Simulated assay, not measured.
Amino acid sequence: MEIVQTNQAPQAIGPYSQAVKVGNMVYTSGNIPLRADGTLVEGTVEEQTHQVFANLKAVLEAAGSSLDKVVKTTVFIKNMDEFARINEVYATYFTTNKPARSTVEVARLPKDVSIEVEAIAII
């Protein structure tokens, strides 16, 4: 097992790692729309979703992987009524290799953001 750490994505805000590599797989923690400097993107759900994917991309690359190698995502959203808007942004990041996905509406997310995404990828 190897802990993944990059300064190109926000640092963990609790007792967890940005990601963990096990064999040829990487498991990311949930990513919320924080910039690498720790400031929050408080704009539209689309802007928040783009920031989440910027963070995921940075963490995956630090692990020796990429968005093209993601096999599964879990998407947590605050409001299922925003699903179509989130899905439009999500689709721009997975144009050829579309991973398996679960999407769940939750009561509340850290820092009251609209979206959090975690991923599993091959290396």
Rank of each mutant, 00 (worst) to 15 (best):
M1D: 13
E2Y: 11
I3F: 02
V4G: 02
V4K: 01
V4L: 02
Q5G: 00
Q8V: 15
Q8T: 13
Q8G: 11
I13K: 14
I13F: 06
I13M: 12
G14Q: 12
Y16S: 03
Y16C: 07
Y16W: 03
Q18V: 09
A19H: 02
G23T: 10
G23Y: 06
M25N: 04
M25T: 00
V26W: 01
S29L: 06
N31W: 04
P33I: 04
L34H: 04
R35I: 06
R35L: 10
R35C: 07
A36V: 02
D37I: 02
D37T: 06
T39F: 08
L40P: 05
E42Q: 15
E42M: 13
G43P: 07
G43T: 14
T44E: 00
V45E: 01
V45C: 02
E47R: 01
E47H: 04
Q51A: 12
Q51C: 06
V52F: 04
V52L: 05
V52E: 01
F53H: 12
F53M: 12
N55L: 06
L56P: 05
L56V: 10
K57Y: 08
L60C: 04
E61T: 09
E61C: 01
A62K: 09
A63P: 04
S65H: 02
S65M: 09
L67D: 05
D68P: 05
K69S: 11
K69N: 13
K69M: 10
V71F: 10
K72Y: 15
T73D: 02
F76W: 14
K78P: 10
N79T: 05
M80C: 01
D81C: 01
E82S: 15
E82W: 12
E82C: 11
F83V: 11
F83E: 07
F83N: 13
E88I: 12
V89M: 08
V89C: 12
V89G: 07
Y90L: 02
A91W: 10
A91T: 12
Y93M: 13
Y93F: 15
Y93E: 10
F94S: 09
F94K: 14
T95N: 06
T95R: 08
T96G: 00
N97G: 11
K98A: 03
A100E: 13
A100F: 13
R101Q: 13
R101V: 14
S102V: 12
T103G: 01
T103W: 08
T103N: 09
V104S: 00
V104I: 15
K111I: 14
S114D: 15
I115Y: 03
I115L: 06
I115Q: 02
I120R: 09
I120L: 10
I122E: 04
I123C: 13
